[in-house]
Each structure stands twice: as structure tokens, then as C-alpha cells.
């Protein structure tokens, strides 16, 4: 039972990290209809900047802020310099241009920070365990990630549902032309949303960094996982991103925990351990296939998007 609770917490932590990446991505998709493969690179930029600043100052909070700001600035540059030219282009060219960005970013961080991976240490005040249950200590830092994820989703919910900007975002999702007609500066709105999404990706990069070796290409994996989240949850839907992220986080963690045991019923333990670990990697994609079969537009996707 303790194992189940601990693994569920691990799954939630993974899920909420994923949420920070995919929430920004889904908003960008939803409002701008732009496919951005470089979103994972913004995650990477956040982690690298945090590792650099954290390494220089030893201050986690400073590293956190720098990571978010670094990713947001990188996002701004990308939006102003490139994405803006792609709004009216076919998705193919968005894919290509942002894939080019991925190649450039992965090499650029190597050129700037070298091949040796960096690390980010968790802040001292969270570097301890909290007894979740008697006999089950759990790292405080991982609980803090879950809390951060909840804060992010609440913030985004309020932003989209309760503010004027959110109103434009909601309107822009369905009636793109109308928003412009109301005199809203659509370009500025796009840039803003893009920067917020980039900052969130950077935030995810920083909070996940203590469990990562910060190296070139770390964002790619999260990028693809976010795509799966969005396919499962539905484009443009925050609710979809939330449910999708948590489903995938839990599916992945549980599969990794219990599949080897399950396989162990049929084959010898060594084989079961290796095969189970490998098949567990594919588990989240099985979730995606099921959703695609049942609801091609995702769980909460707009029917006509």
C-alpha cells in the first residue's frame, strides 16, 4: 500500500511537471494554431539558464526566476523573429521551421555550455523528507513540484476565465477574426500568450532540473510527451491538459512499477524486469491510442478545431 501511495505521488509529480509544459503548448495551439516543436527547447533553455545562474550564485530562487525569465525571453525572440512569419503558413512549414529551431537550440547549448551536463540542486529548505504517512517519508521538493503545478493550473484558469486577456483568448480560439475586429491588438496578444507559454516551459525545466542531467536535447522527450497530452486532452483545452498530464504521469509510473511484477508471473525475474521496464515506456502511447479511437478530437477538444 505504501508502495502504491509513493508511486502515485511520483506519478502526480511527473504529471504536474508535464502540465507546466503542455498547458503553455495547448494555449499556443489553441489561440494561434501554431505547432511549435521548439517548445521543448524552451524547457531546455530554462533548465540551462537555471543551472548556470544556480551554479554561479548557489541560490535556487534566483535560478528559478532566471530560468523562467530566460525561457520567456527566448520565447519572445522566437515569436518576434520567426513564429510571427509563420502564422499564415501551412503547418508543414511551422513544423520545419521549429524543427530547425530544435536542431539549432540543441547545438547552441552545447556550444555555449559545453558537452558536460550541468546540474541544479534542490533548494536547501526543501532538501528533506516529509512523512506523508507513518513509515513513508517523501521528498519535500517533489511535493513542492505538485504544489507548483496546482498553482500553475489555478493561475491559468483564472487568467483564461476571469480576465480580459482570457476573454480575448477564449474568443480568439473560436472567432479569430472577430477579436481583431474589436480592436484588440492580436499581435501583442499572440506575443503575450507565447511568452507566458515559454515561461511555463522554462518553469518546468527548472523544477525538473534536479532530477535531470541538464544536457542538450533534454526537452525533446518532454515535447513529445506534451504532444501526447494534447492529443489526449484536446487542443486548446486547459482542462484537457490537466487531465491528460495526470493520466499520463500516473499511467507511466504505475506501469513501470507493476508491469515487471505482472511479467514476473510468466517469465523469470531478470527478463521480466527488463521487458517490463521497456513495455512500460510505451504505456502512455497506448492510452493515446485508446483516446484516439474513442474521441479523435481528444477528451475535451473543441469539435470543430
Amino acid at each position: 500500500m505504501n508502495l502504491f501511495i509513493e508511486q502515485t505521488l511520483n506519478g502526480l509529480q511527473l504529471g504536474f511537471t508535464l502540465l507546466m509544459v503542455s498547458a503553455g503548448l495547448t494555449l499556443i495551439f489553441g489561440i494561434m494554431n501554431i505547432i511549435n516543436l521548439a517548445h521543448g527547447s524552451l524547457f531546455m533553455v530554462g533548465a540551462f539558464v537555471a543551472a548556470d545562474v544556480g551554479g554561479r550564485t548557489g541560490n535556487y530562487l534566483l535560478a528559478l526566476l532566471a530560468g523562467i525569465a530566460g525561457a520567456a525571453v527566448a520565447g519572445l525572440i522566437v515569436e518576434l523573429g520567426l513564429i510571427r512569419r509563420l502564422y499564415h503558413r501551412d503547418h508543414l512549414y511551422q513544423v520545419l521551421a521549429t524543427f530547425a529551431l530544435v536542431l539549432i537550440a540543441n547545438q547552441a547549448v552545447q556550444m555555449i555550455w559545453g558537452l558536460t551536463p550541468r546540474s541544479v540542486s534542490a533548494p536547501a529548505f526543501l532538501d528533506r523528507t516529509v512523512p506523508v504517512l507513518p513509515g513513508l517519508p517523501y521528498p519535500a521538493y517533489r511535493l513542492a513540484i505538485i504544489a507548483t503545478g496546482i498553482a500553475v493550473i489555478v493561475f491559468l484558469h483564472l487568467l483564461v476565465e476571469r480576465t480580459r486577456v482570457g476573454m480575448w483568448i477564449r474568443a480568439g480560439r473560436t472567432h479569430r477574426e472577430l477579436v481583431g475586429a474589436f480592436g484588440v491588438n492580436v499581435r501583442l496578444l499572440y506575443t503575450l500568450v507565447f511568452a507566458v507559454g515559454a515561461g511555463l516551459a522554462g518553469l518546468a525545466g527548472v523544477v525538473a532540473a534536479p532530477f535531470l542531467s541538464v544536457e542538450s536535447g533534454i526537452g525533446d522527450h518532454f515535447l513529445i510527451l506534451s504532444f501526447v497530452v494534447i492529443v489526449v486532452g484536446g487542443i486548446g483545452s486547459l482542462k484537457g491538459a490537466l487531465y491528460g498530464s495526470l493520466m499520463l504521469g500516473l499511467a507511466d509510473t504505475w506501469a513501470r512499477t507493476y508491469l515487471p511484477d505482472l511479467f514476473g508471473q510468466f517469465v523469470d525475474p531478470s527478463t521480466a524486469a527488463t521487458a517490463g521496464a521497456s513495455v512500460a515506456s510505451a504505456s502512455i502511447y497506448l492510452v493515446m491510442v485508446v483516446v484516439l479511437v474513442v474521441k479523435p478530437n481528444g477528451l475535451f477538444g473543441l469539435a470543430d478545431e
Partner: peptide, 22 residues
Amino acid sequence: VYFIMATLAFNQMIYFLFNALE
């Protein structure tokens, strides 16, 4: 966009299945 992402996700799924072929 869904099509692009779905093909990518299937790609990754098959990739992991190959990884599992000990």
C-alpha cells in the same frame, strides 16, 4: 495539427516497442 502530433506520437510508441525487443 492533430494529425502531425498523432503521427509523431505513434512514431514514439513504435520506437519504444522496438526498444522493448530484448
